[in-house]
Write a protein that binds this DNA or RNA. Structure first.
Length: 897
DNA sequence: ACACTGCATGTAATG
DNA sequence: ATTACATGCAGTGTC
């Protein structure tokens, strides 16, 4: 090791004697501390050599908190401390300059354990000091505290782009005591992550302006510069919580295609960047960005575009943590213009701003539409932000989502791909995949591992796609790989969903054609087979017999089912599958469960087609028809499986109107069941709530003569409601007449006890109280309107509200509704209406007539009158607060209309 | 009528 | 429970 002086010019200590402490950062990187001056150097920035037998953490002397040493020694040492939130002895002594050195949360980064921090064995890195990229050599990481660990070799030679820019070479340690077979997957993740650390590191020590792209730098104060500068190339990362590795598919490429979720450089934001936003850029892509220049590309973050992001509004919502970490600080909502270069070299100016939101901020890039369009991006695609050092220029890349969708939703058998079975389909994909040399060794070793986890990892590494298209204008060579479809089964669920934006369910494909690609849970269940060659142990639990397997189930071969009909005649189901050997389609009994591998040889049900030499049973036309039939079959099945839900959710009126509104759509439950309306995400086609049955806002209302399903349903409902009200009113009159008999007083008291709401009917009420109550009743109009609905609910949603009221009465009788309450409720709207319209005389007349056993309201009252009443009721509907006394089984429900 | 802007809200993720 | 964020939507401006 060549001697090197401490970069603290005041100190100038020679490395050979004074440098000894290596501090492990959470990322697995190391910093060294000059024993003489206490200055710490972060390896990725300035330190060239580390040699330490210690690792872990130190306490900040002033505050006593455990901190990693992230101090970066340079001429601007002190300022840099500001950003890192780290401190060391000497830095702390200078803390008059910046107390932030100890501002880090206690143990905020204290997640690194000695065992994975490892010991730094040897390093030799010529680096960026002075701003020029020279030669950076490997570092060996490993856990040597117990003599067992993983050492990977990283080579990073930026001066030889053809060879190894960002070349990541993972090698098995030369130490004989380290065996890959003994490595857990976790070790590999860590080692890969650690190895990855050094790829993107490298920053100019001279560029103090990290935001040259900021057009208006008024807000770009010095501290922010310092902060950014100090944090530019530091990778403080948690362990990747999930496997975030993937391989590229580039053949004949001498650089790494490993798509690793690169824990990004730490920004000034303290909050950790969610792995979701970790940039997953292959080294090749990095190289493409940097081009021939000596610039170092530091991936910052990436984001999957939401519909809003990719929409015409032109606003790209930025993850808060990312915005605060990597973009210039803004204090005003207006923000500032930001220059961002795309991978073609074109420069865009976006407005980087924020909206106050819930005591927080929501950061957006405005004006991205032209850029998004030029990249031909859409929801689900990914944009990636990087920084080009030493210029500090922000670079925006992108990755199309074609693979992601496929990865999530591919259902091989549903893809008419010319007769490939799922297996052959995938193998076809794999044929197109190649593993780059530097990585294949690892894969190979993983494949060869006896550890099933490693094999799984190996599979995963093989399967995960890598199709980032950092389309430097002339570099479209990856285009073809974009269309590769990869087996969804081998991709971690979390990762897959993230690929198209798990945050937004709306991004998930719901269109019918997309549904075809989905492997539903039920279908997946159908494909499960007991593990081969394993006999289950039979156990009985509570009279249920279970087969207990040691091994997890395996997925059987996929087949397709169709239902043949002859006109309206059901002819039966068929099962078809493809031979894994010859890809010919064979018809099978419907009850057959296929093993994962199936060939014509296994076709014991059709001796004439138990050989691959036997002709295909299907012509291309028939196959097409088969697939179409299968599609129909799936639709029906989906409808069947979802019908119970549809029936159980809404009850009574809602269910009724659902049926009415669905109308023709019932024939296509697949779409009806999944798509939400635009009015409210919770509402779905068929929802009959007041919101959903209205026409789209601003587009005009339905005409009175409209006979659409919605309008007809509403009319039916209203008619039924009013008829019922009339009926009940007449019953109420009869009841009141009975109460006017000699037993009047005691009965009334009894009622008052039972039903406080009925007080209003009492002639004893104080007028003022009555008035107040009337106001209350006005508000409780919803009670009356609720009647049909709740009655329906009481009937468990089985009441046909469109049936004749007479029939309903029989049902209502079984609903144990208080007759008085019904009467009261039925009366309310009319009273309210009369009162509201100043027709108190009529109201008095009505009351009089009620108490004097006058005939009830004419049953033949015109529809217009009824509608008038109803509309008056509706108009007052807003703000109705239901009287709690009406709750419970007897609660009077609310008609949505 | 349409586009734009800024805020509010609901939902999902996270702590 | 809190936070982040996707998106709806009302208010405003512009054609």
């Amino acid at each position: 090791m060549e001697a090197k002086s401490c970069m603290n010019e005041v100190c100038g200590a020679a490395k050979s004697t004074e440098w000894r402490k290596g501090w492990a950062l959470r990322s697995g990187e190391f910093a060294v501390l000059c024993d003489k001056c206490g200055s710490a150097f972060e390896q990725s920035m300035f330190c060239d050599v580390f040699h330490s037998k210690e690792s872990g953490w130190r306490e900040c002397t002033p505050c006593g908190k455990r901190l990693h040493c992230g101090c970066i020694a340079s001429k601007s040492l002190i300022e840099l401390l500001d950003s890192g939130g780290v401190s060391c002895l000497n830095c702390a002594k200078k803390s008059g300059l910046d107390s932030l050195a100890c501002d880090e949360k206690p143990n905020g980064f204290g997640t690194l354990k000695a065992d994975n921090a490892g010991d730094l064995q040897s390093m030799s890195v010529d680096n960026h000091v002075g701003g020029s990229v020279e030669k950076m050599k490997l570092m060996q990481l490993g856990s040597t505290s117990n003599g067992v660990g993983l050492r990977h070799l990283l080579q990073f030679q930026s001066d030889d782009p053809d060879e190894s820019f960002g070349k990541m070479k993972l090698e098995e340690s030369a130490k004989p005591d380290i065996s890959k077979a003994n490595m857990g997957a976790k070790d590999i993740y860590e080692s890969l992550a650690q190895t990855n650390l050094s790829i993107t590191l490298g920053s100019s020590g001279g560029n103090l302006n990290p935001f040259p792209g900021v057009v208006d730098e008024k807000e770009h104060n010095k501290s922010s510069s310092v902060i950014q500068q100090g944090t530019r190339a530091r990778h403080l990362l948690p362990k990747p919580p999930k496997l975030a590795l993937s391989t590229g598919s580039e053949a004949n490429v001498g650089i790494s295609q490993i798509r690793v979720a690169r824990p990004p450089a730490e920004g000034r934001g303290r909050s950790q960047l969610l792995p979701r936003y970790w940039p997953r850029i292959t080294d090749q892509e990095l190289q493409q960005i940097s081009g021939d220049s000596n610039s170092t590309i530091v991936p910052l973050f990436e984001k999957v575009l939401s519909a809003s992001d990719a929409g015409r509004i032109g606003r790209l919502v930025l993850p808060k943590a990312c915005a605060e970490a990597y973009f210039p600080p803004i204090s005003q909502p207006e923000g500032l213009p930001l220059r961002i270069q795309d991978v073609k070299g074109k420069e865009w100016v976006f407005q980087f701003r924020f909206w106050p939101n819930n005591n927080s901020r929501m950061y957006v890039l405005e004006g991205v539409t032209p850029c998004i369009q030029s990249m031909q991006l859409q929801a689900g695609d990914t944009v990636t932000f990087s920084r080009m050092d030493p210029e500090g220029k922000l670079v925006m890349g992108f990755r199309k989502a074609s693979n992601s969708v496929a990865m999530q939703d591919t259902q091989p058998s549903a893809i008419p791909n010319g007769g490939h079975s799922s297996e052959s389909f995938f193998s076809g994909v794999f044929e197109n995949l190649s593993i780059i040399s530097g990585y294949s060794g690892v894969l190979q070793s993983l494949k060869g591992s006896a550890d099933p986890h490693l094999n799984a990892l190996s599979k995963h590494l093989n399967s995960t796609s890598g199709d980032i298209n950092w389309l430097k204008s002339e570099k479209y060579e990856d285009k073809t790989r974009e269309s590769l479809l990869l087996p969804s089964m081998l991709v971690p669920e979390r990762k897959r969903s993230r690929n198209i934006g798990s945050k937004s369910k709306r991004l998930l494909m719901d269109r019918q054609d997309a549904l075809e690609l989905k492997l539903t849970w039920e279908e997946a269940q159908d494909m499960l087979r007991s593990p081969p060659s394993v006999m289950p142990s039979i156990i009985t639990i509570e009279d249920h017999v279970f087969e207990e397997y040691e091994d997890p189930p395996v997925f059987g071969k996929r087949s397709i089912f169709v239902v043949r009909t002859n006109g309206l005649m059901f002819r039966g189901q068929e099962q078809w599958t493809q031979c894994d050997g010859c890809s010919k389609w064979r018809r099978l009994p419907v009850d057959v469960l296929l093993p994962p591998k199936w060939t014509c040889m296994d076709n014991k049900w059709d001796p004439t087609r138990c050989s691959c030499s036997a002709p295909d049973e299907l012509t291309p036309g028939e196959l097409e028809n088969l697939l179409r039939l299968n599609k129909d079959f799936k639709k029906r099945r989906l409808a069947t499986s979802q019908r119970p839900n549809q029936e159980s959710e809404p009850s009574g009126m809602d269910a009724l109107s659902n049926v009415a509104i669905l109308g023709d759509n019932m024939g296509d439950p697949g779409t009806a069941s999944v798509a939400t309306t635009t009015k409210h995400p919770r509402h779905r086609p068929g929802c009959s709530c007041i919101v959903c049955i209205q026409p789209p806002s601003g587009k005009g209302k339905h005409k009175p003569t409209c006979t659409c399903n919605v309008c007809m349903t509403v009319k039916r409902r209203f008619k039924t409601l009013m008829m019922r009200k009339k009926k009940r009113q007449s019953e109420r009159e009869a009841e009141v007449a009975q109460r006017n008999q000699p037993t009047w007083a005691p009965k009334e008291e009894a009622e008052a006890e039972v039903d406080s709401n009925s007080k209003h009917a009492s002639p004893h009420l104080d007028p003022s109280e009555n008035e107040a109550r009337s106001a209350n009743e006005l508000e409780s109009k919803s009670q009356s309107n609720n009647l049909p609905n709740k009655a329906a609910e009481a009937g468990k949603g089985q009441i046909d509200l469109n049936c004749h009221p007479d029939r309903e009465d029989a049902q209502a009788g079984s609903n144990r509704l208080s007759m008085m309450k019904l009467l009261q409720v039925a009366t309310l709207p009319l009273e309210n209406y009369l009162k509201q319209n100043g027709l108190t005389s009529l109201m008095a007349e009505q009351q009089t007539s009620s108490t004097s056993q006058a005939p009830p309201q004419a049953a033949g009252e015109s529809e217009g009158r009824v509608n008038e009443l109803a509309s008056a009721t509706q108009e007052r509907e807003s703000g109705g607060e239901e009287d709690n006394s009406g709750s419970g089984p007897d609660q009077i429900p609310n008609d949505p209309q």
